[in-house]
Amino acid sequence: MKAAESAQAKKQFDLFEFLYKYGTIIMILLLIAVFGAMTDNFLTQSTIIGILRQISIVTIIAIGLTVSLAVGGFDLSVGSTASVANALVISMFVWHGLSMGLSIAVSLALCLVIGLVNAFLVIKFKIQDMLMTLATMFVFQGVALTYTRGATVSQNMIMPNGDFATGVIPKVFGSLGRAPWIIIIMLVVVLIVHLFLTYTKHGRYMYMIGGNPEAAKLSGINVKKYRLAAYLISALLAGVGGIIIAARTMNAEVNAGSSYLMEAVAAAFIGYSVLGSGKPNAFGTFVGAVLIGVLTHGLIMMSVSYYAMDIVKGGVLALALAITYYRKAH
C-alpha cells in the first residue's frame, strides 16, 4: 500500500521533472510547428535568421545578467549600462572622431567602471543586490541622458554651437549590427560564458557563492573577489549589447538600452529550468531568449498587435518564475 503510494508519487514527480527539464525546448518546437502551420512563411531561412538577429542583443545582455545571478546577485542596471555604452560609442565617432577600435575600447572601459560602482555598493554596504542596482539603474540612465543632453546622437547632428558634427560612423561598424556578424557575436558570447561557468574553476566558485554564500566563505573562497568579477562581467556584456544596439541603429537614441532589461530578466529566469539545471546558466538563457523571440515573432506574423507583446513577455516571465520557485519549494 505504502510502496504503491510512493511509487505513484515518484511517477508524478518524474513527470514534473521531465516537463521542468525539457518543457522550454518542447515549447519552442511546438510554437515553431504551430506558427509554421498557421502562416505561410514562418519556416523560411529568412525568418529564422530574422529571429536570431532579433534576439542577439537581448541574449548578450541577458548572459551578463546570468553571471550576476550565478553569484546570487541581480544586476538590474544592465539596461541602463547598455544605454550608456550606446551613447558613448556613437559620441566617440561623431563628436570626437575616434577610430572604431578606440571608440569601442573607451566605451567598454567606462562600462567596467559602472560594474565597479555596482560591485562596490553591493559588497561594501551589503545592500540587497536587486535594490541597489535598481537605484544605480536610474543613476546610469540619468548619466546617459545627461551625457547626450537628452538628444539623439547621430551623424551630421547639429551641435550646441550651431555647427554640424563632423565625425563619421564607419561602415564596418554597421556590419556588426547585421547578420551574420551580430549572430556570430551572440553565439560566441553564449559559448564563452557557458564554458566559463560550467567548465572552469572560477565558474564553479561563482555557483558555490550563489548556492550558499556562508559555506563558500568558510570553504576558503574569496567571496568578495568573485562577486566583483561577476558584476564586472555583467557590465561588460551589457556594454557589448549597447555597442551592438549602436551598430544596428547607427545612432544613439535616448534610453535605447532600457527596453532590453525585462526581456533579459525573462530569458535568464526561463533559463533556470532548461535541461534541469536549476540555476542560472548561459545555454538556458539563450534558449529562454529563443523562446521569447519565436513567440513574439510568430505572434506578430499572425498580426497580433505589437502593443500586446509586453503582455506576452511579462506572462512568460511570470510563468518561468512560478515554475522555478514551485520546484524550489517541493
Partner: peptide
Amino acid sequence: REGIFVEESVAFNLTAVVLSKFTRMRTWL
C-alpha cells in the same frame, strides 16, 4: 547552512576547498 552545498552533488561538495587540484592549467575542471 555553513558547511555544505545541499543543492549540489557529493563530488561538487567534496572538491570545493581545493578545486585547483582538479583542474588543468589551473582553470579547466
